[in-house]
Design a protein around this nucleic acid. Structure first.
Ligand SMILES: [Mn+2]
Ligand SMILES: [Mn+2]
Ligand SMILES: [Mn+2]
Ligand SMILES: [Mn+2]
Lengths: 224, 224
DNA sequence: TATAAATGTTAGATAAACCTAATTCAGGAT
DNA sequence: ATCCTGAATTAGGTTTATCTAACATTTATA
């Protein structure tokens, strides 16, 4: 696996994708902190500092000592490419290889780092240029456009309303398994029956069945 | 990408696959030398020595200082798994994504290292349990069986005979491009017209057209 | 068999990505 | 204005995979 012009390591790619996730995808803020980034990636802050210096050197982020971190234009473009590959592979696994919704992320985390422009283009075509991945997240286009998410969380839904699940915020296996167990999935219709003021737990109805969920759980279900 | 029990690094996997290639696939001998292995992998002999000590430690090869190297049963099993993934991915790229015959190897070299048993099984099924890859090489089965090759090289074919191309020995881009250029491919019928005793160059006919090829080239075309 | 050539190993460095422990800095609270 | 605290950085290590240069062993050849 020889090096192309300015080819990035798996690790560098993961840092860029993490920054995209923190700054754009989740919070709609545009800067991240060292500890926040390190926490997200499961490394120590000292490790992140080293990498931040390297990414700045390569002009992929803007960052000053003790300051906030944000992606440069090149860095963001690169991060969006990786996100595009991640979501295309998730779609492939789900649509073509009979993977379940909660299994795709782990494998896509590896596949997203395969280097071949032709592979991405052909995969996209093979899948029929999909717009959304199996979690309901928008797939960035070949030209690098990433639709903003208009999603809100189930914990924000008003009592007495009905909504439709479109994605999840948490991608851990534990969470996704619990989701399946409750027979929740993409496009499941949810009736919001009531919310407990004490701890934010909610009673909801899915497929005609009433269940109670915690606030923590509701905060990780995205709806339209 | 957390570590599974006894998970191997990309590098360790590449060493095992190289040993399989040298000892079984190409020469049908059962032992390799340090320089030979290092040469094949494009590293220095000193580097290979270090890795050999590690692979012995992990009981993946049998090897004594200054002695010959061969795969242990575990090592061979692991190497065959990687070769299986390599050839399944090549088949996928060729059959489903419209890659050409000479483009698949490079990308499969990356894809072969993806860790997911389910992915391999489902990919195999998706492709209809193929027996041969786009280069005509046998794909190891799920249970680890690898059909021996009965191929001989075009340079060994007798004058006046007709044969069929089934595979190539060389997988470099330069070689494969030249093959395409000559309009040679899997299953092309070749008439062996004559061989020059001086340098082993041969005159052959393909698709009714006469061409002359070098001995070096003929040694890398496999036929039945 | 003695020597030369080829093959293989060791020693000592480097770069990437990580760690722990110690230190520095910036912003909020007295 | 000073202090405290949490955030961030630095210093000093480790591990993996690589290298070069020097050394050791085996094999081939004269
Ligand atoms: Mn995902
Ligand atoms: Mn990743
Ligand atoms: Mn190949
Ligand atoms: Mn490989």
């Amino acid at each position: 696996m020889r090096n192309f012009i300015a080819m990035l390591s798996f690790t560098e790619e993961n840092y860029l994708k993490a920054l995209l996730h923190i700054t754009i995808e989740v919070e709609h803020k545009n800067a991240a902190g060292t500890n926040e980034l390190a926490g997200y990636l499961g490394v120590k802050p000292a490790t992140a500092t080293d990498m931040l210096r390297k990414l700045k050197e390569k002009q992929l982020i803007s960052y000053e000592k003790y300051g906030k971190i944000s992606l440069s234009d090149t860095g963001r473009k690169k991060a969006i490419e990786i996100l595009r590959k991640h979501r295309l592979w998730e779609t492939f696994l789900y649509e073509k290889l009979e993977f379940t919704w909660d299994e795709v992320h782990e494998v896509a985390e590896q596949l997203e780092h395969i280097q071949s422009q032709k592979l991405v283009d052909k995969l996209d075509k093979f899948l029929g240029f999909p717009e959304y991945d199996p979690h309901g997240d928008a797939i960035p286009t070949a030209s690098g456009e990433l639709k903003p998410s208009y999603k809100k969380t189930l914990s924000e839904a008003a009592e007495g309303t009905t909504c439709r699940m479109v994605a999840v915020k948490d991608n851990t296996v534990a969470f996704l398994k619990y989701v399946s167990q409750l027979e929740l999935g993409i496009n499941t219709h949810i009736d919001v029956l009531s919310r407990q003021p004490y701890d934010g737990s909610m009673e909801i109805a899915i497929n005609g069945k009433n269940i109670t969920i915690s606030q923590k759980f509701a905060e990780n279900i995205l709806i339209v």
